[in-house]
Design a protein around this nucleic acid. Structure first.
Length: 576
DNA sequence: AAAAAAC
């Protein structure tokens, strides 16, 4: 409390103890608004003893129902689509029986987590990390490192995925954000590397034995940290690949002593092409954020890495919270006799995240809305997503100029050092408001984040799911606010369905929006937009105006409002 | 659909 009073006077540093132990803080005094700045002290959110992520799965609602309804409404003329959907759902529920995944007595976590497995000879999941010692001879040190970092009970993806990887099978794993996917692949890999009784023999060759690919440097860095935690007390060498380490590793003697390389794809490709790195002894390859890694821009790089991994007995695994059909197909092509594990519902955020959609009319109305939001109590640190680097920078500047404390900014246009510093400040709890791009959207695990704001509308369902997945991690609650403007109309419904699917509510009129067909979306753009505008005006407009009026305006803001009304007028004209 | 990120 004292720390926050200090803070409210402005300028003072965030109390570093603040995020050291979340639990400690959570048990403290009830939430109080700190004078003026609206910073809220959390009071709830004790870690639940068991991470029951999927309560909603027991009684399927939301999307399933919405899908059916949708099919009913839109299926006229093409009933086969509804039929296909229904069959798919049945197939999924059959999968688990076919593969003898286990009964509830065997695996108490099963029912809760609604896991579906597909593939031949699916290994049984385990219930306690200790089980792994006997079943797979996982080194005791690894297990004690686990408990040291208070990993007590395996999450769904860990219970199901780890045995698969320990049996050296290929795996495609889909599990929601913040459910411990990193550990699910790191632990078995490190076990295999260190265990003398592993299914594959290590005497074959020298050089890097495991490679983990991630889409951003920050994520690679974070994975490396996890790796170090697990490896503590053992001689494993895990290397975070960067320019610096790449040149060190060009020395073959050094290289041969490295077990695990964690890297972004292009960095690795560069080293391979320079002849400074050989991957012919790689026996474990993981694509983290797999769907992202299989995006067209990354795909060729990833393929090059895969091609360089010539070891015949290589195990490959892909992990993500989202896996669109296209990416899944690609992944399945890369994997050999794979098992596919899906925890929860695909492409769905956790119900722990309370999501809202907020109408803000147009771009110019966003800043006033955000400032209003920040003038009320909120839970720091706050993560704000924008669509471009320049917008990230300028929004951060605006916030600072409007007197918001401890604003930070992070995008890939910044130098490595700037990026590293921003992440450290975030980890230390010194940032209250972090404005960022997609670079932070995936994988990043900041335990303190309880609120995410999509200042700019996400460009895909996947992006949405990952962005808001920065909160609500490891069983904690989270909050996500998404601004939408008239222009976002065509994509609104898709996101709205995601909200529904994960147990958040959506205004009726959004659900009634017609679903724009792919082909017609372009030409219909105008019409759709008009629909949205009208519907939005009825419900959201007044709120938006009220909000704007509530803000005592600085000159800057008044200018903004003027510009905004001008724009509105122009748009109204052009609509006609 | 479209930007970001990767070196």
């Amino acid at each position: 409390m004292e720390a926050f009073q200090l803070l409210s006077r402005g300028g003072a540093r965030f109390d570093k103890q603040r995020f050291k132990s979340d639990v400690q803080i959570f048990n403290k005094a009830p939430a109080r608004d700190v004078k003026g700045k609206g910073v809220l002290i959390p009071h709830d959110a004790q870690l639940p003893p068991e991470l029951d992520f999927f309560k909603y799965a027991k009684a399927p609602t939301g999307k399933r129902k919405a899908e059916d309804k949708e099919s009913d409404v839109h299926a006229e003329g093409k009933p086969e689509r509804a039929e296909r959907k229904r069959r798919k759902i049945e197939d999924e529920s059959l999968d688990s029986d076919d593969n003898h995944i286990g009964t509830e007595e065997d695996i108490p976590t099963m029912q809760k987590h609604r896991v579906t497995a597909k593939g031949s000879d699916v290994p049984k999941p385990f219930t306690s990390f200790e089980d792994l010692r006997e079943r797979y001879h996982v080194p005791p040190l690894l297990l004690s490192n686990l408990s040291e970092h208070s990993y007590k009970h395996p999450t769904g993806i860990q219970a199901h995925g780890i045995p698969i990887l320990l049996e050296h099978r290929d795996l495609a794993a889909v599990s929601p954000t913040g459910t411990g996917k990193t550990l699910a692949y790191l632990m078995p890999i490190m076990s295999a590397l260190g265990s003398p009784i592993s299914s594959m023999k290590n005497e074959g060759g020298r050089g890097v034995r495991a490679v983990i690919l991630a889409p951003t440097r920050e994520l690679a860095h974070q994975i490396h940290n996890e790796c170090l935690k697990l490896a503590a007390g053992r001689k494993w060498r895990a290397v975070l690949f960067s320019k610096a380490t790449a040149s060190t590793l060009s020395d073959k003697n050094v290289r041969d002593k490295v077990d695990i390389v964690i890297s972004t794809p292009l960095r690795l490709v560069a080293s391979i092409q320079e002849g400074n790195l050989e991957l012919n002894n790689v026996q474990h390859l993981v694509l983290d954020e797999a769907d992202r890694m299989l995006d067209p821009e990354f795909l060729s790089q990833v393929q090059e890495v895969i091609a360089a991994c010539t070891h015949p007995n290589i195990q490959k695994a892909v992990f993500s919270a989202t896996l669109p059909a296209g990416a899944e197909k690609l992944a399945m092509g890369i994997l050999r006799n794979p098992i596919r594990i899906i925890v929860g519902l695909k492409d769905t955020p956790l119900p722990l995240i309370a999501q809202t959609l907020t109408y803000v009319a147009d771009d110019a109305s966003k800043l006033p809305s955000l400032l209003t939001y920040l003038s009320q109590p909120y839970n720091p640190p706050l993560l704000i997503f924008t669509s471009t680097q320049p917008r990230t920078t300028s929004l951060a500047e605006e916030l600072i100029m409007n007197g918001i404390s401890n604003v930070d900014c992070l995008h890939a246009g910044m130098t490595k050092k700037e990026r590293d510093d921003a992440v450290s400040r975030m980890r230390r709890g010194e940032s209250w408001v972090m404005v960022t791009t997609e670079v932070m959207a995936r994988g990043m695990d900041f335990k303190g984040i309880r609120e995410v704001i999509n200042y700019d509308f996400p460009t895909s369902v996947q992006s949405y799911v990952h962005r808001i997945g920065r909160t609500g991690r490891a069983g904690r609650e989270g909050k996500a606010v998404t601004y939408f403007t008239d222009e976002d109309g065509p994509f609104l419904k898709a996101i709205a369905n995601v909200l529904l699917q994960s147990g958040s509510s959506v205004p009726e009129w959004i659900l009634k929006l017609p679903k724009p067909s792919k082909m017609k979306r372009k030409q219909m753009g105008k019409v759709k937009r008009a629909d949205t505008v009208n519907a939005a005006r009825k419900i959201g407009r007044n709120d938006a105006i009220k909000k704007r009026d509530m803000i005592a305006g600085s000159k800057r803001r008044k200018e903004k409002e003027l510009r905004e009304t001008d724009k509105n007028r122009e748009e109204e004209k052009s609509d006609k």
